[in-house]
């Protein structure tokens, strides 16, 4: 900022103008000429976001319409030609027990994963951080980051191959005369299954940020604490954990703000196997209501409900974090 303003001032000073007005204008023109290429570089990407992110966001007005796909020549024209019905879609939505079941499933899974998924990368990062050999550490990291790059189709496939009724473990257990319990299509244990899959896919990736936070802790603190007689557990409790607290809080906020999203593909793929009772979450509900059964209006209402509540959640979580003296995700 400063270097640029001095530079601009420099060019103006080099060509002194008698009156202030044209000076202002020429300064603008100089800035325009200097920065126009930068703006031009940004415009194509911005255009993509306007078209594929912001325009559909505005399209949420559909939630207040009785969408009729047969009006006009295209889906977009039909959106404008359909009748306004106020909150009619929301009324139908809130009367639908399947919607509330999807909301319950979503919040249940979020809560469960907050306890059984969220802390796992922290623990694993502490474990990795205690490995002294850089080569061993690099090797382990290289292996455990890998599943992050697999699609959900692959993740579910691997779980089916390992834990399914015809999978590797079932065979091994059968050889010793035991039976593998049904885990891949049992709605009662589905929450454990999806959490295990999520952990398998992303626990390694999740350690990256905590490892960086761990390595930024001032090393002399440990030394001083050890000199004062603090054992390894006390150092963990009084130095390590407070040292990474800002990162933990930040990620917790992000997770809470995203409480209504637990992923789409993972549930979509396993919905046939365990049934909608356990596997229907808000995003899959929007898909089945809106696109598969073509109740676009109700689907859009459910999507808008999710978007608005999600936005409020993230703003609220950020406010709470700032009140507790943490940095939060953004600040003014």
């Amino acid at each position: 900022m400063t270097s640029e303003s001095t530079k601009v001032a420099g060019t103006v000073a080099a060509r002194p103008r008698p009156r202030p007005m044209p000076a202002m204008r020429s300064r603008w023109r100089a800035r325009w000429r200097r920065d126009l290429p930068l703006v031009l570089m940004t415009v194509p990407a911005a255009g993509f976001l306007l078209l594929f992110h912001y325009l559909p966001t505005l399209g949420n007005f559909l939630a207040f319409k009785d969408y009729n796909p047969f009006l006009g020549d295209s889906a977009i024209e039909a959106m404008f030609l359909s009748d306004w019905i106020g909150f009619g879609n929301f009324q139908l939505l809130f009367e639908d027990p399947l919607f509330w079941s999807a909301v319950r499933n979503t919040l249940g899974i979020t809560a469960f994963q907050l306890v059984f998924f969220f802390p796992v990368p922290i623990a694993l990062a502490l474990l990795l951080n205690s490995i002294l050999s850089q080569r061993l550490r690099g090797l382990v990291q290289g292996i455990i980051y890998l599943p992050h790059f697999f699609s959900w189709v692959l993740v579910v496939t691997f779980f089916l191959m390992m834990l399914g009724g015809d999978g590797l473990f079932a065979h091994t257990l059968r050889d010793v005369g035991l039976r593998m319990p049904n885990v891949m299509s049992n709605p009662d244990t589905f929450i454990y299954l999806v959490t295990s899959e999520a952990v398998w896919k992303d626990v390694g990736w999740g350690t990256i940020i905590f490892l960086a936070a761990l390595s930024s802790i001032d090393f002399s603190l440990y030394e001083a604490a050890a000199a004062d007689g603090a054992g390894r557990w006390r150092r963990l409790w009084h130095i390590t954990l407070p040292g990474i607290r800002p990162v933990i809080v930040l990620l917790l906020i992000l997770r809470l703000g995203d409480a209504l999203s637990v992923g789409f593909e993972q549930f979509f793929l396993q919905r046939d196997a365990v049934g909608a009772g356990a596997a229907e979450v808000l995003d899959t509900y929007v898909y089945w209501q809106g696109i598969a059964t073509q109740n676009y209006g109700i689907g859009a209402a459910a999507g808008l409900f999710k978007g608005v509540v999600g936005l409020l959640l993230i703003l609220a979580a950020n406010r709470v974090a700032q009140r507790f003296g943490e940095q939060g995700v953004y600040s003014r």
């Binding site: 976001l49 594929f52 325009l55 295209s74 889906a75 977009i76 689907g299 993230i314």
Partner: peptide, 18 residues
Amino acid sequence: TFLFGPGIIPSYLLVTGV
């Protein structure tokens, strides 16, 4: 764009609409 997504239905209708 980090704060909100456009939603499945409007995106679907836009992409099919164009």
